[in-house]
Design a binder for these strands. Structure first.
Lengths: 221, 221
DNA sequence: CTAAAATGAATGACCGTTCATTCAAAGTCA
DNA sequence: TGACTTTGAATGAACGGTCATTCATTTTAG
């Protein structure tokens, strides 16, 4: 995750403290963005939430802009790690099982929670004025898409004549998942993870009706 | 649209000027948010873009926060007007035609353009810290959803036993459209409106395969 | 003892808001 | 209609507060 310091055990007390403070700053900044918006996430607020001195931000990140960029990277890394773990866990399974697992990862509270989503939206809001954020928050750039496409190609047994279908299904499902995130962000109390999961799987199935096991009827409560 | 002044012709020169300046401030603020983010959309920048004096913001909106709120309302009103016009234009048609028209409205450049979407995202980013924005940017609160549900209920001939299906389809299609907006925001250059429209219609169809005309094969370029 | 980490008061830039002043249009009356 | 008064829109310099950053000093681990 962190290129500079990989393993805690090789670090002395001083470096462990430094690493811990770095993390505290990242977490406090996330919290400040969640609570007060990017506009309200001032050095003073971060200092207040973290309990660390005001000067420590410059010490660790040189500037506040650098800190914000590090928060974006941290968020993106956390997201990637989450879905990749699900890919590893299900990599022996059938495409349908892997698909189910990947969608579940994307809707999991580990990544889809109020604080994280507020921060995604904060950075996404500024991709035009701060191009350096774009790469971290762009689902098209994400390897997630590639993983999804791989599953769909598996569903059609890599038939090159149907590759366009796999790509369209990938685009559609990515968009649907993005929309679920938006719905969660705006209506966290009403959001139903299970319904979202079922809807995504249902849509994925509808693209490849012959390649799934016989389609069960829409399971509605 | 504006509760205070309805028709230009009843206004004198002074009030027309006032109305024009109000609009200039809203537009300049949108532009500033698009170019510099909410953080960078300062009074100075708005003054610079609009060519109007710094003091005019307080004069028209009392405070900058009020101005931002007015921009959010303006955006929401513009959005609502756009899809409602499409509903009026197609209200005599079959459900499928109305659905097609409603989706097209949601993907139309009139609302789905880089500046507008950047502003949607900016306000959505702050719904936790600025609850007053939520109502304007929440698709669940929107009458759009109600219109969509009405169309789906038409597709199932208002069969009460299938109402849950209509609701699920409404939620799914709303999410899909939200996701299309996100994709457009992050990748405006690669975004394909026609593909998005086809994907949405395809998903809608897949919920009610028997209620559409015989399903054509996925039309892929 | 040395060197790096941590501190936080000081600094200057920039923020939104205020308000005394200017200016032009609307209203009034002969 | 033309001269004068009233009204309120518009201005922008000035103000106090807040921002991110700096750096001389203190603390602490090696």
């Amino acid at each position: 995750m962190d290129e500079l310091v990989d393993a805690d055990e090789v670090l002395n007390a001083r470096d462990r403290g430094k690493k811990r403070h770095r993390r505290q700053l990242l977490d406090a900044t996330s919290e400040a963005i969640y609570l007060y918006g990017v506009r309200g996430a001032t050095i003073d607020k971060i200092h207040e939430i973290s309990g660390l001195s005001r000067g420590m931000i410059s010490l660790h990140f040189q500037s506040k802009e650098n800190l914000l960029k590090a928060v974006a990277k941290d968020l993106a890394d956390e997201y990637t790690q989450n879905w990749q773990e699900s890919v590893i866990a299900s990599h022996e399974g059938e495409p349908v099982e892997r698909l189910n697992s990947l969608i579940a990862a994307d809707l999991s509270p580990a990544v889809l929670n109020e604080r994280n989503i507020a921060i995604w939206f904060s950075f996404r809001a500024e991709v035009n004025s701060h191009p350096e954020y774009r790469h971290y928050v762009n689902s098209r750039d994400s390897e997630f898409r590639v993983a999804l496409l791989g599953i769909f190609r598996g569903l059609i047994s890599d038939d090159p004549d149907r590759d366009a279908e796999a790509k369209l299904a990938t685009n559609t499902l990515t968009a649907l998942l993005e929309g679920m995130w938006t719905d969660f962000h705006l209506n966290p109390k009403n959001f139903d993870r299970d319904e979202a999961q079922r809807a995504c799987l249902y849509v994925a199935r509808s693209f490849f009706p012959d390649n799934f096991e016989p389609q069960p009827p829409l399971d509605i409560q």
